[in-house]
């Protein structure tokens, strides 16, 4: 015979324990959230603080205003819109071209069987582990030599930077796309093949529409990665009006961070905003892509 009294007691005690546990976890969440958004709030506050230096900043500024933003947007030495435009342009072109090139290559790796396929796939992976920082010397020399012959592909051009980004992203993206393509059943191609379709037709009309989700993820990750890159951009771009936003911010930070901290904060916040919005809107999509193997941080 079940003792209803004890059962009730047990249930209410489980309920209380659950409530306590949820409350504790919510308190923990508050601390974690403070840890995670404090720097952002701090920058927001700095950008609204009219005194504009690092030393005089408080979390809630005395006379908040948009002075730093006006200064930022009217500054010739800190041409925010030019830099921002450069970054958007370079990231967009890189993402689109990189997607096109790697998807086509990945299709071949996934669907064709040819001599050297395995070696090439393994090679792609191994090559990616080479720390490319030092390859900068070679890349720099190469771009400057090419520029002696074809000036619009030389140093201080966006075209050269885009080409270098494209070359660097190939290996990882080909693997990502190939992995996804392998999960698309081959029956689809085979039946189309029987109908007499060429590979190109199969790829563009059948496979490509199926790839849309992964295309969006890889494209976004490539976009975000390019937007945030600064080492290559800093070495290859020379003049103020050609800088990407990251290079501009880094230079600015090196020169006068603590005096013009408010202006820097305004620039940093506005520069971070587009990417934050993309992430927060497309959270679920990107998380799916992350677990398939792209790494940041």
């Amino acid at each position: 015979m079940s003792d209803m009294g004890t059962f009730q007691q047990l249930r209410s005690s489980i309920k209380t324990r659950r409530k306590v546990s949820v409350a504790l976890r919510l308190i923990l969440a508050v601390f974690l959230i403070i840890f995670s958004i404090f720097p952002i709030l701090w920058v927001l506050s700095a950008s609204l603080n009219p005194t504009g230096t690092l030393a005089t900043q408080k979390l809630i500024p005395d006379n908040p205003g948009f002075g730093n933003y006006t200064e930022l947007l009217n500054s010739t030495q800190f041409p925010f819109w030019t830099w921002f435009g450069n970054s958007i342009k370079i990231a967009t072109i890189t993402a689109v071209l990189s997607l096109s090139i790697t998807t086509i290559a990945a299709y071949a790796f996934s669907r064709f069987r040819f001599k050297g396929r395995q070696t090439m796939l393994k090679g792609l992976l191994l090559i990616q582990t080479f720390p490319t920082l030092l390859a900068l010397v070679a890349t720099f020399l190469m771009i400057s030599q090419v520029g002696d012959i074809i000036p619009f592909l030389g140093l201080n051009t966006h075209a050269s930077l885009i080409l270098v980004y494209l070359g660097g992203a190939m290996g990882v993206n080909i693997w990502l796309m190939k992995g996804y393509l392998d999960t698309v059943p081959r029956d689809i191609d085979e039946s189309a093949m029987v109908e007499g379709a060429t590979h190109w037709q199969i790829f563009t009309r059948l496979i490509l529409p199926l790839l849309r989700p992964i295309l969006v993820v890889v494209g976004l990750l490539s976009y975000i990665g390019t937007y945030g890159e600064f080492v290559l951009a800093r070495v290859l771009l020379k003049s103020n009006e050609n800088y990407t936003l990251m290079v501009g911010l880094e230079r600015f930070a090196g020169a006068q961070m603590s005096q013009r901290w408010g202006v820097f904060a305004a620039g940093a916040l506005m520069g971070a905003l587009p990417i934050m919005i993309i992430y927060l809107i497309l959270q679920d999509l990107i998380v799916g892509g992350l677990t398939t193997g792209a790494v940041k941080g």
Partner: peptide, 21 residues
């Protein structure tokens, strides 16, 4: 959504912010 915010800011910007904090 609040906890992934650090991840959504370009690393260069966050590192510079921490440096000043």
């Amino acid at each position: 959504s609040l906890l992934i915010i650090p991840y959504t800011v370009p690393a260069l910007i966050t590192i510079l912010i921490w440096r000043s904090m």
